[in-house]
Structures are given as C-alpha cells and as structure tokens.
Design a binder for these strands. Structure first.
Lengths: 220, 220
DNA sequence: TTATAATGAATTGTATAAAATAAGCAATCA
DNA sequence: TGATTGCTTATTTTATACAATTCATTATAA
C-alpha cells in the first residue's frame, strides 16, 4: 500500500478537527495560534491555514485580529443544521436507492452490526460516530453525486459534535439502533418512499433529543 | 456609513473571486502564487490563504506541491450543482414565503426592473449576475435561515461562472426575464406551491441552456 | 466620580527567507 | 535505442521575524 503524503497543514487540520469533534476543544474556546503551533511543533503558518480550512467546514469561527474559536451553535442553528441534513440526505437517499448495489447494502448490514456492538465499549462516542457516518454514506453510495456527498459530509461534521456530546453525556441516541434497522429494511426492499421518510424522521428525532439535552443543560 | 476593515487576504479573495467569476481567470488555468503576489503587490502568504478560502468555496482546486487552479466542472458536475440549488432554494423559498415582508417584495420588484434594464448595457454579465443574486436573496429573506442562505450563496457562486459565461457568449438566459416576473407574481400572492415550482423550473431551465451551450462548445 | 486618553502586553497579520517537493532534462547503462 | 537514474530548476510549503491591531490597565482631566 502506497503511503500518502500529507502536508503539515493537512495534519494539523485532522488533529484539530478530531479535538473539536471529540469535545477536547470546547465550543467557544479561543484557539491561540502560537499555543497550538507550540503544542504541535509546527510554525504558526500551517496552524493558520488549518484554522482557515476548519472555518470553511464550519467548525471554527475566525475574526480578524481577534482570532479563532471553536464554533458554537445555538438552538436555532442546531435546528437549521438538522433540517438541512434531513432535506439533503433524504434527496440523496432517494437518488441512491434507484441504483444501489447489493454489495453496498450488504456492507451497510455489516456496519450496522458493528454499530450496535460499539455502544457499550470504550471510546463509544468516537467509534460510534465514525461507524454511523460510514453507514449513512454506504446507503448514499448509489447516488453518484460526489458534490452532494461532500456537502453532506461537511454538514455531518458539524452535527457530529452534538451527536457525540449527547452520546457521551446522556447515554446515547436512544432510538438510533432500531431506527437504523428499520431504515436498512426499507432500503433493502427498495421502498424509496418509506426509506426517505424513515431517514428524515431519524435525523429529526436525533435533533429533538439533542435540542432537549442542550436546553436542559442550558437551564442549569 | 462606516468603512469596514479588510485584511489583505480578504481583499485578495475578492479580487481573485471576481476574476474567476468574470472569466478573466479561465477554468483549469494554474494560479501561480508568486505571480499573483507580485501582481497584487502583497506577499505570498495572503495569496495562499485566499486560494485556500476559494478552494473551500469550490472555485479553486488545490494540489499539494503542484499549486492551485480555477476549478473546472464537467457536464455532470454542472448538472449536480443546479439540481442541488433547485432543491435547497426551493425549500428556502417555501420557508421564506410564510413570513416574507411586503418591503422585501417591493424591493424584489425594484431589483427586477434594474435586472431587465441591465441586459443590453455594458458589462451586462457582471451587473446582471449581481442583481440576479440580490433578487433571489431578497425572496429568501423571510426564511430566517442564515446557514442555509450562506450555503445557497456559495453554490450560486459556483453556478455563477457558468451563468455569466452563457450570458456573455450566447446572449443571455433567454427565458430568465419572464420567469422572474412570474416567480415574483406567485410570491406576491403568497402562492407557495406555484412559487416553488416556478423557482425550480427556472433554475433547471437555466441549467438546460447552459448544458446545451457547454456541449456545443465542447464539440467544436 | 466618571469619562477619556495613554500605555503596554498579548495576539494576530504579513513579509521575507529557508526548506521541501515535484517535474523536466541530461547522463548513464543495458 | 530505450529505460532508468541523478541532477537542475521551478514551485510550493514552512519557519522566522517584524508590523499592526486589540484589549486591558493605568493615568489624566472634566
């Protein structure tokens, strides 16, 4: 297997993204370029460029001369983000199911099993979230819409933080397991209408749980 | 009115974006950092950061150690881009019409007049495209969905190059004028269903014209 | 006391210099 | 000749150094 070359900037992007998604860097927390450069043992230039890239993904907010911080979404923004996901992913799934291969569906079944068993284990939130993303991408693989898929992945990265947080603090998206199974069943029978409806409901119900959690935490 | 401070990076972003959208920088053309820095009288750092930002917008493609170039979309990608726009903008318009103010609609009427008169004039493509964007944003102003609006604007910047190109080389989106008028009429009567249908059809018909144009040019 | 201006430390933004990498071309070997 | 290797050059990537800006704090004046 060929090793792929990565620039320092790309490495910093990956490290910082993971720190934000995992919650190690908390939303709203200022990200000091010099401190990060020091910690990662690079100069400030790749750190700056990484922060800019993360800003484009929505995970970081930049203000000229004031610096960067991990983006903090309020309840309305969380709402909007999940609505957007429901719409776009619904459309993507519909397009995908027309052409989806049996291999992709088999793979999705596989991932689903891992997903269920991941819940109790160590580092559950991080593993779960990655598998969850794989599962959904697998179902969208028939669509052949690379730009839309990229967009979905960016939106998911933004949602991911909240999903992980919820998973970590409230013991998980309680209904995710059975919902995934139902969704996969509709996909397997190529029942586009029900599959899309289930997917949207799945995304929006996770939104509701997360919003409820955020609201409750806010009031403390 | 207070003038807003802009970093060199932001200025370079705006200049380069306009050059790409206007066609001065042709798709596929390599963007040499040193040459651009020299031309704009800044160092290479702000140029690099600007190119990274434009990459996030989809206008520029970066390859490590090889440099940046203006992104070139093939027919399928143009297709996907416009489909995505139709879906998201349709949804955004529906949400907007529920709350849209009479002022916004009046403003849209205003812009529409300017839009028609802009067609024959000098620099038609650039002015038209800006007004066109204003017109649509005006119609979406009632939605109160800032993240979705941002996304729409990014997608529009990608589509814009092709719209301007078509405007410039083929004398314009022939049906845009009457379509805009019809769309506005539906909006004024708060007829959500017809307005959304009209908008989608408007976006997709411009896609068809552009694809036909690209195909014809390709075969030469 | 309150408002405003001056000061300085912390931080970001930019320029320049150095290092790393890729691509083209000549030299070498089969 | 054809393929491969090593060198040269162009370009990008990164580091370091400096300039500009912000923010907090203190000093000054109304």
């Amino acid at each position: 297997m060929a090793i792929e070359y990565k620039t320092r900037t790309q490495l910093v992007v990956e490290i910082l993204r993971e720190k934000i998604l995992s919650g190690e860097i908390v939303a709203g927390q200022p990200l000091r370029q010099a401190a990060l450069a020091d910690e990662l043992n690079v100069s400030r230039i790749p750190v700056r460029e990484a922060l800019l890239q993360l800003e484009a993904e929505g995970l970081v907010t930049f203000e000229p001369h004031k610096g960067a911080s991990a983006t903090e979404l309020n309840l309305d923004q969380v709402d909007e983000l999940f609505e957007l996901r429901a719409m776009i992913e619904g459309d993507l799934l519909a397009a995908s199911l027309v052409n989806i291969s049996d291999e992709a569906l088999a793979q999705a079944t596989d991932i689903l099993a891992k997903l269920d068993s991941a819940l109790g284990k160590e580092n559950a939130a991080n593993t779960w979230s990655e598998l969850n993303s794989d599962f959904h991408n697998c179902l969208y693989s028939g669509a052949n819409r690379p730009q839309t898929a990229d967009l979905v992945n960016i939106l998911n990265k933004n949602a991911d933080r909240y999903i992980r947080m919820h998973l970590l603090w409230a013991g998980g998206i309680s209904k995710a397991g059975p919902e995934h199974a139902e969704l996969l069943a509709f996909c397997q029978s190529r029942d586009i209408e029900n599959a899309v409806a289930k997917l949207k409901q799945h995304i929006l119900s996770s939104r509701d749980e997360i919003k409820a959690f955020l609201l409750q935490r806010e009031s403390n």
